[in-house]
């Protein structure tokens, strides 16, 4: 897998599955994301955008979690 395939969760299209590689967020939000299963190595599916385009819902650990653009564009991964 080359670097070219690395995208942020926010850039993912509906139906994409992304394997998380980096979490470029610190502090409590990072802890919260970890608790929810956004850990490096986890597979995340892009589920749907909300009617106004943001937030976006993702499937992680078989649950749907919505994240805002501010966070989801800082979570990077490889398109699977």
């Amino acid at each position: 897998m080359g670097l070219s395939k690395k995208i942020s969760l926010f850039e993912g299209e509906k139906g994409n599955i992304i394997k998380i590689t980096d979490l470029n967020i610190d502090g409590i939000m990072r802890r919260r994301l970890l608790d929810l299963g956004f850990v490096p190595g986890a597979y995340v599916e892009v589920l749907r955008k909300s009617p106004l385009g943001d937030p976006v819902a993702f499937r992680v650990s078989n649950t749907s979690i919505a994240l805002r653009k501010e966070e989801s564009h800082k979570i990077l991964g490889e398109l699977v």
Binding site: I28, R32, L36, S64, A66, L67
Partner: peptide, 10 residues
């Protein structure tokens, strides 16, 4: 800045 947004859709 707006922060800490996570929302579960059960």
């Amino acid at each position: 800045v707006p922060t800490h947004y996570t929302l579960e859709l059960p």
